[in-house]
């Protein structure tokens, strides 16, 4: 618990330093923020075009789809805000041997990696997500009760743990293979499954998205919870996230033992 508190403090420090670094180059900082906010609005618009010019997603109305899109953008934004830079950071550090520097700090190295990813690029999707979510919310006349809030918090924590598990697994494999751009692309394609409601996929894919790769915790189940359509699969996906995290930590320990550093 003490070390979790320490890591939380370190995250805060890294966040401050990251902001300071970005603000050194003021024009770049402001331009990146603006571009990020503008580009983020494209996703829901494309979905709107798709929905109005096709049969849409079976079982989903346009406003429900907007709710899903709002939550998706909000999740992607938060994810990038909290852990956006980590993959590039890990590859750079391990290739150059700078990972050594993390191993001489009095923290768990995986902890130091996880608290080093703050990136302001997530602010765009976050803002756009909030707007889309509020519009969909008012169109659907949604209400919020304490039970819904608790379930949403459980899903958010499960989602964070699942994403951390993916980063840990990625970092562990990077230690063994060093260059990971190819595998990074595969991971991005897989993560793309989370951009659509799970129930539009065939049964086999649905099962995978609830168990082995329980991406359903990120957007699908939070949407279902708000729409009052949650089911037992929500708990399966949540438990699977914990299991995936445990597996990734075991994998990390084994791979760290084989770290070879770079030449001296």
């Amino acid at each position: 618990m003490d070390s979790l508190y320490g890591l939380a403090r370190l995250y805060f420090w890294n966040m401050k330093i990251s902001l300071q670094k970005m603000m050194v180059y003021r024009f770049d900082f402001i331009a990146s923020l603006l571009v990020s906010i503008l580009v983020s609005g494209i996703g829901p618009y494309v979905q709107y075009l798709y929905f109005t010019r096709s049969n849409g997603y079976p079982g989903w109305t346009l406003n429900e789809m907007f709710l899903f899109q709002g939550l998706l953008l909000l999740w992607l934004g938060l994810r990038d805000l909290l852990f956006g830079d980590i993959r590039g950071y890990v590859i750079k550090f391990i290739r150059s041997g700078d990972f050594d520097k993390l191993l001489i700090k009095p923290y768990s190295p995986v902890g130091v990696i996880l608290v080093s990813g703050f990136s302001l690029s997530g602010i765009g999707p976050c803002s756009a997500g909030m707007v889309v979510l509020l519009v969909a919310w008012s169109q659907l006349n949604l209400t919020l009760c304490w039970e819904t809030v608790v379930l949403l918090i459980v899903m958010f924590i499960s989602g964070l743990l699942l994403y951390l598990a993916i980063i840990i697994m990625f970092s562990a494999i990077t230690i063994m293979l060093v260059q990971m751009n190819g595998i990074g692309l595969i991971i991005d394609r897989l993560l793309g499954f989370a951009d659509y409601p799970v129930d539009i996929f065939p049964k086999a894919v649905q099962t995978v998205l609830l168990t082995a790769l329980p991406f359903a915790v990120w957007t699908f189940y939070p949407t279902q919870i708000l729409l009052g359509r949650s089911d037992i699969g929500m708990w399966v996906a949540s438990a699977s996230s914990l299991i995936v995290l445990w597996i990734s930590l075991q994998c990390w320990k084994r791979c760290l033992h084989h770290y070879t550093s770079a030449g001296g």
Partner: peptide, 22 residues
């Protein structure tokens, strides 16, 4: 490792610990 490095200082002449822009 964690307890040990609290009492250890390391300087890698060719690997900086400093933030380049700050």
């Amino acid at each position: 490792r964690k307890r040990y490095v609290k009492n250890l200082g390391v300087l890698f002449g060719q690997k900086s610990q400093l933030n380049w822009d700050l």
